[in-house]
């Protein structure tokens, strides 16, 4: 199969330039990491970010994923969002979510654990080292992005609460706030949004609790203040605006599984060989490009995650 690559000319240059600012912030974040980059992240939300130092020429790395593909333009990452709690129109989410209150915010971590705890987001930022991970995001609808996330491994959080031996799965829940999330007033879905992972998936080093992207604090449209990022699964698994994490014995029923069980499975691993009943998953369009590229098994993370599914028929466990 032949896939031609070409750049997308339509985004005005002015919309792309925040990356320059981003790179300098990113440098700053790295530099500040030793001093406690978490404090910086916490401060970002309160006022304007401190003036970033000038980026050092040559040190600023080309922002790409490990396959060499460039990060998606910041404008697209914060302007093209699937977030049905606000609106089903991706380009309208940012405006609809602009006034969503993300502070104060607490997340309860409990269920089958020895040490249930409620964390304020600030606690999470200070207790866990924030790191940058450049991940591909593949939406089940057939588009994809490359996003430089900021966050910490979910495993670190789960270790804090000490899962019991019976805990097999992790259940995540989004805030239920229909007054500020107008989409939750719709009866088409079984709100609030729920997602789940098998415990080994949740403990995998790739699985990230994200608090920011492109060096900035998360914006509401990207799932602020706290969201999951599971890069080898379709985007809908990466639940946003999390308020509750429970360790449970059986696989949780996600919102999408409840809405269309034949279309959305529990695993939802990116798999070009398992077509969605209504659209092919063999190829995808990277936002910012006009061509198609082949979709990779496990979204290109097979080396890190395929072992967890050894012996499973992924057509059955889709």
């Amino acid at each position: 199969m032949h896939f031609k690559r070409q750049s997308y000319p339509a985004i005005p240059a002015a919309d792309i330039t925040p990356e320059a600012l981003f790179r300098s912030r990113r440098q700053f974040l790295r530099g500040a990491g030793a001093l406690g980059g978490t404090i910086l992240l916490g401060a970002c939300g309160l006022g304007s970010p401190p003036a970033p130092p000038a980026p050092t020429p040559g040190v600023v790395a080309q922002l790409t994923d490990e396959l060499g593909d460039p990060a998606t333009a910041y404008a697209a990452v914060i302007g093209y969002n699937n977030y049905y709690e606000f609106t089903t129109t991706k380009e309208d989410v940012a405006a609809a979510a602009a006034n969503f209150p993300t502070s104060p915010w607490e997340v309860q971590v409990g269920g089958l654990v020895r040490n249930p705890q409620t964390f304020a987001v600030e606690d999470l930022l200070s207790r866990f080292d924030q790191e940058e991970r450049i991940y591909r995001l593949r939406c089940v609808e057939g588009w994809s992005m490359v996003i430089p996330w900021i966050g910490f491994p979910l495993a670190a959080l789960l270790k804090e609460v000490e899962p019991l031996a019976e805990a097999q799965y992790v259940r995540f829940e989004t805030i239920y706030a229909p007054d500020v999330m107008p989409g939750q007033q719709s009866r088409w879905y079984n709100w609030p949004y729920v997602e789940g992972l098998r415990l080994d998936e949740a403990m995998n080093d790739l699985t990230l609790m994200s608090t920011g992207l492109y060096g900035n604090q998360l914006l509401p449209q990207n799932g602020a203040p706290l969201r999951l990022v599971v890069p080898w699964k379709y985007g809908f698994k990466s639940i946003k605006a999390i308020v509750k994490i429970d360790l449970v014995e059986t696989a949780p029923l996600s919102l999408w599984m409840a809405a269309a069980p034949n279309e959305y499975g529990f695993y939802a691993n990116v798999n070009p060989d398992v077509p969605h009943p209504r659209w092919s998953q063999a190829s995808e369009r990277r936002i910012g490009e006009l061509d198609r590229r082949p979709t990779l098994p496990f979204n290109g993370y097979a080396e890190q995650v395929a072992g967890m599914y050894a012996g499973m028929d992924l057509r059955v466990f889709f």
Partner: peptide, 11 residues
């Protein structure tokens, strides 16, 4: 032609 179809112009 003017690139005003948003981030996913083909769709």
């Amino acid at each position: 032609l003017q690139g005003r179809l948003g981030f996913n112009p083909i769709q």
